[in-house]
Design a binder for these strands. Structure first.
Length: 514
RNA sequence: GCGCCUCUAGCUCAAUUGGCAGAGCAGCUGACUCUUAAUCAGCGGGUUCUGGGUUCAAGUCCCAGGGGGCGCACCA
């Protein structure tokens, strides 16, 4: 580099991002290294903080035991008094225990070093007997201690709530500070394990399908695009795994599911993230009824896994109890819409009735009447009906509810209803006011599928960036014969939201931030 | 993408009409052998997001940019 000022040495960069507290701790690190170790390869732990607490559930104040333990944890509290120092250390699971370092037990030099070198945030190893302090606090009475890892940056103030942005950008600190943050990680893992175990119980096989796709399809959404140097071609980050899972179905993996990430280049808010975890499942020789049964069971089992008492009633962050148990309602989309339309109708004569025959201009008038605005370029019968349904029916749904039988034109991958003309065998599952999952009797006729793709590509030509492309390779697979099947998709992040009552940014450990 | 709000010490937040940039916790020095956000005495710590502008004087007002939040649009 000719411009030397643009280049900072590592040392200069280190110095540039610093403050007094960091400098002090760096000096302590230097001293620890000079005297021995600041980052020992390991420390001789004999047990965990949780195990110590469990072994001595109700020690009386002032009681002493001869239980000698070696434990380690992060220092979250220090009270250095003259000849008896107190500190609290915290394990990764959030359990804490007090430690006591006394002049009598460790001697003058060790006590002095403890006061000079141990800071909030350090990982500390202590060895000693388990006792209860005179005030009854379970403690380890230290005879040996050692810093297990010296922290250079100060821990945030643990007594005030961390700001939302700070928590998201520094999740590791959020995990140290907040039990709720730790709990979400555990709940999420337990939920995923529960889903997989329910699938296993029903004979499903988990597979992984491409994240990078050459053809954009499987759902209606704007994709992220990228470029492959090796293939010299444009690639899409998948918006859905559907078309590959169905290829697997053609290949004879009759009960198949995938839990993995999808990417959609759309707005981000409290219920939408650009990358989100998605579950999709397909069941050969099933239909949208059987897959609804399975979905209900998957979620009810997940609720058991997520709820502290193992029941199907979960407690949300705001204290609300939400009950997933029992048989969930299955309501008809057009029927429930017409009911609410009639209830809201104040005019003369009969309330308007919406059917699959209702022309667009009438739907548009109904939408205009309640200020629903759709883009006339891409609006269809189905889009109007779904918008009207969301306006009239959705807000009144409390319990988990399957909404059945959707307009044909908004569901290009779905099979026509076996007996009702003009609708498809599709349901949406609504929980807590948002769409949690969607299920279909899958379209198996390759000729109809081709027509639907062509209709989609015409929409794309008209400027709809969400419309799918014609996927010839997928069509070829279907032409070899796809078994009749029920299919389902569910947002994992949304499932966590439904189980915990938190926003999507809380359910994702490391959400995308600029 | 459009509109509104917001950004101050390591963290959480104050700062009157434009008039010396502060508190709590954290840090440093000292005292204290049972503390629970210990207490007491003293001390240090700031590019007020960035860059311009107005003004005798800008954390505060104006313009542009950046981060974040909320609403609308789009969507799961």
């Amino acid at each position: 580099m000719s411009d030397a000022t643009a280049e900072l040495s590592a040392e200069q960069q280190l110095a540039a991002d610093t403050n007094e507290q960091r400098e002090v701790r760096l000096a302590k690190r230097d001293r620890l290294i000079a005297e021995g170790e600041a980052y020992p390869v390991s420390v001789p732990v004999t047990t965990t903080i949780a195990a110590v607490r469990a072994a001595h559930p109700d020690l009386e104040a002032g009681a002493e035991t001869d239980d000698e333990v070696g434990i380690a944890g992060r220092v979250v509290h220090v009270r250095n008094t003259g000849k008896l120092c107190f500190a609290a250390i915290q394990a990764g699971d959030g359990t804490r225990i007090q430690i006591m370092v006394s002049l009598a037990a460790v001697g003058e030099t060790s006590l002095k070093r403890f006061k000079e070198l141990v800071d909030l945030g350090d990982h500390l190893f202590v060895h000693g007997r388990v006792i209860a302090s005179k005030r009854g606090e379970l403690s380890v009475f230290v005879d040996q201690w050692q810093i297990a890892s010296k922290a250079i940056r100060p821990l945030p103030n643990l007594h005030s709530e961390l700001g939302e942005e700070f928590r998201v950008r520094n999740r590791y600190l959020d995990l140290i500070a907040r039990q709720q943050a730790r709990q979400m990680v555990i709940t999420r893992a337990a939920t995923n394990a529960s889903l997989r175990s329910t699938f296993a119980a029903h004979g499903f096989t988990e597979i992984e399908t491409p994240m990078l796709q050459t053809v954009h399809g499987g759902a209606s959404a704007r994709p992220f695009t990228t470029h492959s140097n090796a293939f010299d071609t444009e690639l899409f980050l998948r918006i859905a795994p559907e078309l590959f899972l169905k290829r697997a179905l053609v290949g004879g993996i009759d009960r198949v599911f995938e839990i993995n990430r999808n990417f959609r280049n759309e707005g981000a808010d409290s219920t939408h993230s650009p990358e989100f975890a998605m579950l999709e499942a397909y069941e050969a020789y099933g239909d949208y009824n059987s897959i609804a049964d399975l979905t209900q069971e998957l979620i009810q089992n997940a609720a058991r896994a997520a709820s502290p008492d193992g029941s199907q009633t979960v407690t949300w962050a705001d204290g609300t109890r939400y009950d997933f148990s029992g048989q969930w309602d299955r309501i008809d989309l057009y029927g429930s819409l017409n009911e609410q339309l009639a209830a809201a109708y104040t005019g003369e004569g009969q309330a308007p009735q919406i059917t699959v025959e209702t022309p667009i201009d009438q739907l548009q008038a109904l939408a205009d009447a309640v200020d629903l605005k759709l883009d006339p370029k891409t609006a269809t019968h189905g889009k109007y009906v779904e918008e009207l349904w969301e306006h009239y029916v959705k807000p009144g749904l409390e319990r988990p509810t399957f909404v059945m039988d959707f307009p044909l034109d908004t569901s290009p991958l779905t099979r026509q209803h076996r007996s009702k003309p003009g609708v498809v065998e599709k349901w949406d599952l609504y929980v807590r006011g948002f769409e949690l999952a969607t299920g279909y009797s899958e379209l198996a006729d390759p000729v109809v599928q081709r027509q639907r793709f062509v209709e989609q590509s015409l929409l794309a030509a008209k400027g709809d960036p969400e419309a799918m492309q014609v996927d010839e390779e997928f069509l070829a697979a279907m032409e070899y014969g796809m078994p009749p099947a029920g299919g389902m998709g569910m947002g994992i992040d949304r499932l966590l939201m439904a189980l915990t009552g938190l926003g999507i940014r809380e359910t994702v450990l490391f959400p995308l931030v600029k």
